[in-house]
């Protein structure tokens, strides 16, 4: 599989082409098994820094499984097994000496279904700080506010930080979960269909937020929604039956794909 040779970025209103020189995550010959069932085979991909990489494909194609490999979230599912390598800044995250807790602090995650803890809004965001050893109350307070602002939800919750997070609407809960993930200052943010359960307005807010966040984070997003992939991602990988069929700049995938199956999928002929 060929890797994209360059990156298109918009500077001062005009498109410039830059070489892809700054990989954040590299997966090499990655295989993944649920017990005996092979869910990913031979996945090789380079995910660039400070860009949004979209993963698309039909249900069960392995895109979520791949995403969950990037912070070793699959470790907590019994009977799973990984072969191959995933490098984060050149360091193998499946190496025996890798500290999974450290890894997950560097690679944050937002889930498909918003999953706030049954605690207050404040405690939801402060949780990650506390488990990572933050003690000073004033520092935690400042960080909580900054994260909520960053996730564009501060104005809506600033007067009720002590009330339960479960009382928020679905879209607010999801932005709270994003704030929670941002609080521990990850380098990479994984998003597993973050807007699939939300109405169009809430979805638009999340998408705007993703555009904001890519300045500071490397974002990998799984989505079922083709328009969303086209709107938010700089690069797109098309997964099918556990393999990457094609990976390229998003406009290439959507307008001029090299593989027939990619074209069939993005034009809605199957999937």
């Amino acid at each position: 599989m060929k890797l994209p040779a360059d990156v298109v970025s918009k500077k001062n209103g005009k498109h410039t082409i830059q070489p892809l020189s700054d990989p954040k995550i590299e997966a090499k010959d990655l295989d993944f098994f649920y017990s005996e069932k092979k869910a990913l085979s031979d996945v090789t991909i380079t995910i660039p820094s400070n860009r949004v990489t979209g993963l698309i494909g039909p249900s069960g194609c392995g895109k979520s499984t791949f995403l969950r490999c990037l912070n070793r979230m699959n470790d907590i599912i019994p009977g799973t097994r990984v072969q191959g390598k995933i490098l984060l800044d050149g360091q193998d995250i499946y190496a025996p000496d890798m500290d999974v807790v450290q890894l997950r602090c560097r690679v944050g995650m937002v889930f498909q279904k918003s999953n706030p803890f049954p605690k207050s809004i404040y405690d939801n965001v402060a949780y990650g700080l506390r488990v990572n050893g933050w003690k000073d109350r004033r520092e935690i307070e400042a960080k909580v506010e900054q994260s909520l602002r960053h996730a564009a939800i501060w104005e809506e919750v600033k007067d009720r930080l002590k009330s339960s997070a479960l009382d928020l609407s679905g879209g607010q809960q999801q932005r709270l979960c994003i704030a929670r993930a941002l609080a521990i200052q990850p380098e990479v943010l994984l998003m597993d269909e973050p807007a699939s359960a939300l109405d169009p307005i809430a979805t638009a807010r999340i998408e705007d937020l993703i555009q904001e966040l890519k300045k500071d984070y490397t974002i990998v997003i799984v989505t079922h929604n083709m328009q969303q992939a086209a709107r938010v991602s700089d690069f797109t990988a098309f997964f099918y039956l556990g393999q990457i069929i094609e990976f390229d700049r998003t406009e290439v995938i959507f307008t001029n794909p090299r593989q027939q199956r990619t074209e069939d999928y993005v034009t809605g002929r199957f999937g």
Partner: peptide, 19 residues
């Protein structure tokens, strides 16, 4: 999903259990 949310924030097994 609650456990996963907590693990994703860098919790240890013990922290997930007790917190």
């Amino acid at each position: 999903s609650l456990r996963e949310g907590a693990y994703a924030l860098g919790s240890t097994n013990l922290q997930v259990s007790f917190r």
